[in-house]
Simulated scan of single mutants.
Amino acid sequence: MCNTRPCLKLEIEDPIASFRAAINENPKNISYTNNSGLTSRTMALNAKCWHPNRHLTISFLDNPPASLKEAIKTHIWEWADYVSLTFSFIDNKDAVIRIKTDTTQNASQIGTDALTIAAGKPTMFIYARPGEADFRTVVLHEFGHALGLHHEHLHPDANIPWNKPKVYQAYAEKWGMDKESVDLNIFTPINEATTMTPYDPTSIMHYPVEKELTDGKFEVPMNTEISWEDKRIAAYFYPIEIPDGGSCESP
């Protein structure tokens, strides 16, 4: 079984506050529909995308070693080529994105849900460390959540042929996850109100799927790169202006 600690969904305590934060930040979060041909995994009843030209400040809450900070920064910056957002890392603990590294989990709020978290509290958790095989993958994945992307294995069209008893047992033994947590994080599709982009098994947002947990019928490796479809979605919601006054919505 994969040795990377799974990224677990962070529950929102106040769905109304989540909705208001999304719409106040970017009114288009309620208007993205299948009319565009590109509504997405980022959407539940509403999307949680930042305003396309938003400047996101990012800070660390627990003063990690400089080497860890720099490694996390390096991989977060990899997303910058595909979005019109700008990023800066600040020492102020009231940044928009607040990372906690003294933790036992890898997780992040989805997009604008970060605005519902009290000042000084973490919006992202990174347990992985440089030197671990999947450190870069974890950082790319968690910041994908911060941009508004959900877990791709929960796409309604994924139809992964899980052997559920094997999954319950494996995740309990390896990660101490109970049945409720496994159901939420692995088996419960995103309940989209709109048409979505095609299922992308190559997405950086996809859980690895071990062949033994599908009785040999299906497998997805640990994806280590931002996929073409990830880039396309990022460029659509955060279009990059080009010199002639247009925008680049597809990488």
Rank of each mutant, 00 (worst) to 15 (best):
K48C: 14
K48Y: 14
C49A: 14
H51D: 12
P52F: 03
P52W: 00
N53G: 13
N53W: 03
H55T: 15
H55N: 14
H55R: 15
T57Q: 03
T57M: 06
T57G: 03
T57N: 07
I58F: 05
I58A: 09
F60M: 04
F60C: 11
F60I: 04
L61V: 07
P65A: 04
A66D: 14
A66E: 14
S67K: 09
S67R: 06
S67V: 14
S67N: 12
L68R: 05
E70R: 13
I72K: 11
I72F: 07
K73D: 11
K73P: 09
K73A: 04
T74N: 14
T74S: 14
T74I: 09
H75Q: 06
H75N: 02
H75T: 02
I76S: 02
W77V: 11
W77C: 10
W77K: 09
W77P: 04
W77A: 08
W79C: 05
W79Y: 13
A80Q: 15
D81T: 10
D81E: 15
Y82M: 12
V83G: 02
V83S: 13
V83E: 09
S84A: 11
S84D: 12
L85H: 10
T86K: 02
S88Y: 10
F89I: 06
I90G: 07
K93V: 15
K93L: 11
K93C: 08
A95C: 03
A95Y: 01
V96W: 12
V96F: 07
V96I: 15
I97R: 04
R98H: 03
I99P: 10
K100L: 15
T101G: 09
T101H: 08
D102N: 15
T104R: 14
T104W: 10
T104V: 14
T104Q: 14
Q105T: 13
N106D: 03
N106M: 00
S108H: 07
Q109E: 06
T112W: 05
D113I: 00
A114Q: 09
T116N: 08
T116Q: 01
I117R: 01
I117G: 01
A118M: 13
A118V: 07
A119P: 05
A119C: 08
A119V: 00
A119E: 08
G120K: 03
K121H: 07
K121I: 08
P122K: 12
T123G: 04
T123L: 00
T123S: 02
M124F: 03
F125Q: 03
I126N: 02
Y127I: 05
Y127T: 03
A128W: 05
A128S: 15
A128Q: 11
A128Y: 05
P130D: 00
G131I: 15
G131N: 11
G131R: 13
A133N: 04
A133E: 12
D134F: 08
F135E: 13
R136E: 15
V138I: 12
V139W: 09
L140M: 13
H141V: 09
H141Y: 08
H141E: 13
H141A: 10
F143P: 00
F143A: 03
G144Y: 09
H145P: 01
H145D: 01
A146R: 00
A146M: 04
L147W: 00
L149D: 02
L149H: 01
H150K: 15
H150Y: 10
E152I: 01
E152L: 01
E152V: 08
P156K: 10
A158Y: 10
A158E: 07
N159D: 11
I160Q: 04
I160G: 06
W162R: 04
N163Q: 08
K164I: 15
P165S: 01
P165K: 07
K166G: 07
K166W: 10
